[in-house]
Design a protein around this nucleic acid. Sequence first.
DNA 1: ACTATCTTGAAACGAACGTTCCAAGATGAC
DNA 2: GTCATCTTGGAACGTTCGTTTCAAGATAGT
Lengths: 195, 195
Amino acid sequence: MADVKHFDPDTVLDTVVRLFWRQGVATTGIQDIVNATGLNRSSLYATFGGKQELYRAALERYVQDRSRFGRLEEDDRGLPAITEFFTGLIETRCTGEFAQWGCMISNAHAGTENGDPAVRAILDRQHQGLRTALHTALLSAQRQGQLADEADPAAAADVLALLAHGVNLRSRAGADAQQLHRTIAAAIAAVAPRA
Amino acid sequence: MADVKHFDPDTVLDTVVRLFWRQGVATTGIQDIVNATGLNRSSLYATFGGKQELYRAALERYVQDRSRFGRLEEDDRGLPAITEFFTGLIETRCTGEFAQWGCMISNAHAGTENGDPAVRAILDRQHQGLRTALHTALLSAQRQGQLADEADPAAAADVLALLAHGVNLRSRAGADAQQLHRTIAAAIAAVAPRA
DNA sequence: ACTATCTTGAAACGAACGTTCCAAGATGAC
DNA sequence: GTCATCTTGGAACGTTCGTTTCAAGATAGT
């Protein structure tokens, strides 16, 4: 009955994610998106709606594709799982394709993006998810005797979840990976029993 | 010989700080600044230069006026000084005039602002300053027997400095002050000797 | 092959952007 | 009071913003 899209919306959305992730929503114009995707404005608006809706979709996509605490939650090794999570995080933030891009979620916290209730809901959901994943991993660690007697898994999870934002921000400004690794290692060591 | 300014540049800059702090540089227009300050565009450009130079000046002013770790550095009580620093930080971030504004420095990390080397230099300087202040306070704590034997003041300072960014980000998205207080208390308690 | 239906290209929209310009106004030195 | 000098008001600059519009093009069902 009708024509079909001449492009793959999933591929396009992935390209858009990278634009918003690196440059932020305020400093990324529709023209930038047209240039990067090769799409026409008509196709863009017909498929995704306006800029704000496109940003929301991109943020959801970012969460689905780039969030790594799902693995953490299923990893029952305890502290090594947490260490691995942060090690991977820092490497992603400091080297390779996404070096100095920060985290799209952390970035959204700092911008005017979070004025949109739908965006703020994503930020909260993501933070709670990370807290829960860390809490689960810490309980697992506790069960395996990897935690000091006085350590509080819930409180430690909150501390580490906040710390992740610090890593994301500082890495975007070019912080040294080694330095971040050392700091996170110290934070994790703080809940372990004395050597 | 000549006319004199009909306004106080210091007062104007303070107003500009609040605009950039709350809304960010990308989403704050020159028109917003004209409206908020009552200045004419001519006076604005003649006094401060363009938007980017104005932002840099505002960021420097923010650091001078709002940075609180100077007090921390001169406070030799040890852990209580650190607790007080974070307590005040969280209150400023969550209640009163600046509630949910976050920290202008943290916000700058997440935006395109940090592409400007002059801006990034301010961010680095500020982070190092906070690390040093915390380190000094922790050494003071250690001298007074407030630290566990195995605690590493330098590493703990790094952890707490990163944590501050977490507080700044999450508070901007409306995080609960009590929750933040509890988390920070746990992080500080982690370096204290077992009760 | 016809046609209904969706997609695409390209131009255009008004509004807002940061910046510049210049005449008019205000000031202090002489 | 005069004059040189800086400041101010306000219009205007060209660009870019996000969005809309519509004719031309492409497709799948009949």
